[in-house]
């Protein structure tokens, strides 16, 4: 499972009551109400634990976290993250 699939699964399981096929990679997660501010905090903690990284507050910006695609791109450009895990 890639990280986006894992994040999706986590959102469905622990944050939102929607089904995985209802979230698209370019859905505005916060603006469509899929996750709220509390959910965003949970999501960040999940990513940090899953990838064993620290996401600094300064990186908590719209460009990095608005959509699943944004999150993916953000993690890709972080040199300390190995996304090629199984």
């Amino acid at each position: 499972m890639n990280i986006i699939e894992k994040i999706k699964a986590y959102i469905v399981q622990s944050i939102s009551d929607i089904t995985p096929d209802e979230i698209d990679a370019d859905d505005d997660l916060l603006g469509s109400g899929i996750i709220d501010s509390m959910g965003m905090m949970k999501l960040v903690i999940f990513i940090e634990e899953e990838l064993d990284i620290k996401i600094p507050d300064a990186d908590m910006i719209v460009e990095n976290f608005m959509t699943l695609q944004n999150i993916n791109d953000y993690l890709l450009q972080r040199k300390d993250v190995d996304l090629k895990q199984d």
């Binding site: 709220d36 908590m60 910006i61 719209v62 976290f65």
Partner: peptide, 14 residues
Amino acid sequence: LPDAYLKLPVSLSA
């Protein structure tokens, strides 16, 4: 101010 910005204060400030 769009919803996503209001939930990410670093972006809102900018």
